[in-house]
């Protein structure tokens, strides 16, 4: 159990930049070094964790933990993944609060802010490609973006509606098509 916690603590501590950067590290630790699961199993887990809501890295760790030691294992691996983030951010938050007004920090962050906006804008196009946008579903992201940006609709409702819409569309239209064929 402690082994699970320690392994995922290590993984959490050494990945910078989010979930997908974690995959090679998880593969290295969990598949090659500890041999807890096979590479094929990991690939399956990644596919499922991607389609589940929540934080990708946490999802993966819960899966692996559960597979090895049931609920307790899932709990400790999730705790291990979250703990380094939590502690580091807390430390930064406590310190940064005091340096916020400092002119050096202020200038640095004035330069960083537009860069962060660009970093959020850049994956839009990559994701548009992987979502297989076509002339038939191109309106979905456009309507979603306008609803959130200009009308102030909560992204949570947009996601909820998109999921239900996709399901309903499948129920009403796709089945007809299939029976026609």
């Amino acid at each position: 159990m402690f082994e699970l916690f320690r392994t995922f603590f290590h993984i959490g501590l050494f990945t910078i930049g989010g979930g997908y950067a974690m995959i090679p590290l998880i593969e290295d630790k969990v598949v090659s070094e500890k041999q807890w699961i096979s590479k094929e199993e990991l690939m399956d887990l990644i596919a499922v964790a991607q389609s589940c809501p929540g934080i990708f890295a946490v999802n993966i760790s819960i899966f692996i933990g559960y597979k090895l030691r049931k609920t307790k294992g899932a709990f400790f691996s999730a705790l291990g993944t979250v703990m380094p983030s939590f502690l580091i951010i807390l430390l930064i938050a406590l310190v940064f609060q005091q340096f916020r007004e400092n002119w050096v920090v202020e200038r640095i962050f004035r330069g960083i802010r537009p860069a962060v906006v660009a970093l959020i804008a850049a994956p839009v196009f990559r994701m548009a490609k992987s979502a297989k946008l076509s002339k038939y579903n191109f309106w979905i992201p456009v309507v979603a973006a306008i609803a959130i940006w200009l009308l102030g609709v909560s992204p949570i409702y947009v996601i909820l509606l998109a999921g239900i819409g996709g399901y309903a569309y499948g129920q009403f239209f796709k089945e007809e098509e299939e029976t026609e064929i």
């Binding site: 839009v124 979502a131 946008l133 579903n137 191109f138 979603a144 959130i148 947009v158 996709g166």
Partner: peptide
């Protein structure tokens, strides 16, 4: 199929 395009919109927004 509904979620994926919506996520693109989320990011753009």
């Amino acid at each position: 199929q509904g979620l994926r395009p919506a996520v693109v919109g989320l990011l753009a927004a």
